[in-house]
Amino acid sequence: MNIGEIAKRAGVSRSTVSYALSGKRPVSDETREKIQRVIDELGYRPNASARALANGRTSTIGLVFPPAGNHYTGMQLDFIGSVVEAAAAHDYDVLLSPSGVDSDRSFQRLLGERRVDGAILMEIRLEDDRVDHLAELDFPAIAIGRTARPEGTWWVGLDHTALAAACVHHLADLGHRRIAFVNRPEQLLRAG
């Protein structure tokens, strides 16, 4: 089903159907209602690709996350789920793109083909060429974490110093005197 068929059944031009759907130009209430009746009758759903081409927006956010290796942690999966839920609340879809450092092919397609309106990058490294590449393209993006040179890039993170202090104080207030700190695997720390 396409807007040509809707136009034919509603007795209007294709451009009138297009204007009624996009709201770019005024269409009389009577004509809009006639078009809507045909749309409802046929169960028409607009083609997302055609709509993106027409208005230059995909209504999709790219979530760039690290390749799984052996598996994803519960925290990573919770974060991915939270991004999807938040995006859906604002009528956005999320395109998941596993991408490591060195701006691999998946990441290049995401940007080069403008499949998304913006990107969220997870698992940022101190030296991360993906962040540099996004900045060079002036592509709308935000990083979860920061690089060694965070100036000029958008990023969010936790105040790890305050977080660690709160944890230690809490355990000390409970009477604990020996506290262990379990960190990320050594190879991740060495990798930056």
Rank of each mutant, 00 (worst) to 15 (best):
M1P: 04
N2F: 10
I6T: 03
G11S: 01
R14M: 06
T16E: 08
T16V: 12
S18M: 02
S18Y: 04
S18A: 10
A20G: 03
S22M: 09
K24P: 02
V27G: 05
V27M: 07
D29W: 04
D29V: 13
I35L: 01
R37A: 08
I39H: 01
I39T: 01
Y44M: 00
R45G: 03
P46Y: 02
P46E: 01
N47K: 00
N47L: 02
A48M: 04
A50L: 00
R51L: 05
N55F: 11
G56Y: 04
S59D: 15
I61F: 13
G62M: 05
G62Y: 00
G62P: 02
F65Y: 15
P67T: 08
P67E: 09
G69P: 07
G69L: 11
T73E: 10
Q76H: 15
Q76N: 12
L77Y: 12
F79V: 06
V84C: 12
A87C: 05
H90R: 12
L96G: 06
G100N: 03
S103N: 11
R105C: 08
Q108H: 04
R109C: 10
G112H: 01
G112M: 03
R115N: 05
R115K: 11
V116M: 06
G118S: 08
L121S: 00
L126W: 13
D129R: 06
V131F: 06
D132W: 08
H133G: 08
P140T: 08
A143T: 06
G145C: 02
T147R: 04
P150Y: 07
E151P: 11
G152H: 13
T153A: 11
T153C: 13
T153M: 14
L158R: 10
A165D: 12
V168R: 09
V168S: 11
H169R: 15
D173H: 13
H176I: 12
R177T: 14
R177D: 13
R178F: 11
R178V: 15
R178N: 15
R184N: 13
P185K: 09
L189T: 12
R190D: 14
R190N: 13
A191L: 13
A191Q: 14
G192C: 07
